[in-house]
């Protein structure tokens, strides 16, 4: 989506219409900050930001060394959130994530030591290297926004984001996330190789990790909360929902897919499309907004039937969009 749109919507009424462009500026600032670290990946960055604004968890999948972890780091840093990183390994246990009760000799009681999950942004690095048991501990926390350990339920801080990275599951030593758990992630994005220009800049520039401490938060926590509130208020008209349902129905009826999109997937698409619309400075969702987030939201939920070649999320999304006319 190019900027400086010829068809930017002129403001109609004072209140909501001025809010949207205001948020747009804030978010553009965030995206710009991240783009200084992750070069040439603006579209993926915008998708990642949209995912977080829609209060969804993000899964970054790609081969090692294309900047997954850096992107996660940068996101947390730019949004000014409290950050914990968990490196998933095959011997990681649920208690290593959730926390553990230890006997305190002074008080003669068990005291709960919260695990790294009690944090606003969790970077679950290489999440598919851990065993399914550990994976599910994380994924339950993602869904419930709370942790139950030692019979006591403890709420997690707000906002609570999980940014997970994973290697493609055909790599050695991975436990692929089952489909039901993939579904917990609002979006899955693939970074891919940088283009030649970006790669040259990367090679010439400073170490990306060194740039991280220099980043200043582009949003205050309350500002982030306000943006998230505004995302929820973005209008989705009946016509837009018609289009969304047409997409969903096509995925359910076409022989091209193993299984169709679930109602949860539909909700995820709508939430992400609202975030995208707000990022574009609009108070209403357009079909284009829906189309823009389809690669991130749909790629890991739709499985192309009878196709051995692994299609990227973008290719699956492009085919779906092309197949469904806008009503």
């Amino acid at each position: 989506m190019s900027k400086g749109a010829a068809c930017a919507l002129p403001p109609r009424t004072a209140n909501p219409a001025t809010i949207a462009p205001m948020h747009r500026e804030q978010i553009d600032h965030v995206v710009k900050q991240i783009s200084q670290v992750i070069l040439g990946k603006e579209r993926q960055i915008r998708l990642a930001v949209a995912c977080l604004l829609a209060r969804g968890h993000l899964l970054i999948e790609d081969i090692p060394g294309v900047g997954k972890t850096t992107l996660a780091h940068t996101l947390a840093a730019v949004l000014g959130l409290q950050f914990q990183r968990i490196q998933f390994t095959s011997d990681l246990l649920p208690a290593d994530i959730l926390g553990v009760s230890i006997y305190d000799r002074d008080t003669a009681r068990f005291r709960f030591h919260p695990g790294p999950i009690f944090s606003q942004v969790i970077l679950a690095d290489e999440v598919n290297r851990a065993t399914p048991k550990t994976q599910s501990a994380l994924l339950e926390a993602m869904e419930e926004h709370q942790v139950t350990a030692e019979g006591e339920t403890r709420p997690l801080p707000e906002p609570f984001f999980v940014i997970a990275t994973q290697n493609p599951s055909n790599q050695i030593g991975t436990f692929p996330l089952p489909e039901s758990q993939l579904d917990r992630f609002l979006m899955r994005i693939e970074l891919g190789y940088p283009d030649a220009g970006a790669e040259r800049a990367l090679l010439q520039g400073a170490d990306r990790r060194d740039l991280l401490p220099k980043l200043t938060p582009a949003l205050q926590p309350e500002e982030l909360a306000a943006v998230q509130e505004a995302v929820r208020a973005v209008h989705a008209s009946g016509a837009l929902l018609d289009y969304l349902q047409a997409l969903i129905n096509y995925s359910r009826q076409s022989p091209d897919y193993v299984s169709g999109l679930s109602p949860r997937a539909a909700l995820a698409m709508l939430a992400a499309a609202r975030a995208w619309a707000l990022m574009e400075g609009r108070n209403q969702v357009l079909p284009e907004d829906l189309q823009a987030i389809v690669p991130g939201v749909v790629g890991h939920r739709l499985h192309v039937a009878r196709d051995n070649s692994r299609l990227t999320g973008a290719a699956v999304a492009a085919a779906l969009i092309e197949a469904v006319p806008i009503p």
Partner: peptide, 8 residues
Amino acid sequence: MRLRYGAT
């Protein structure tokens, strides 16, 4: 776009 996808 405003009529079809907008709130008002």
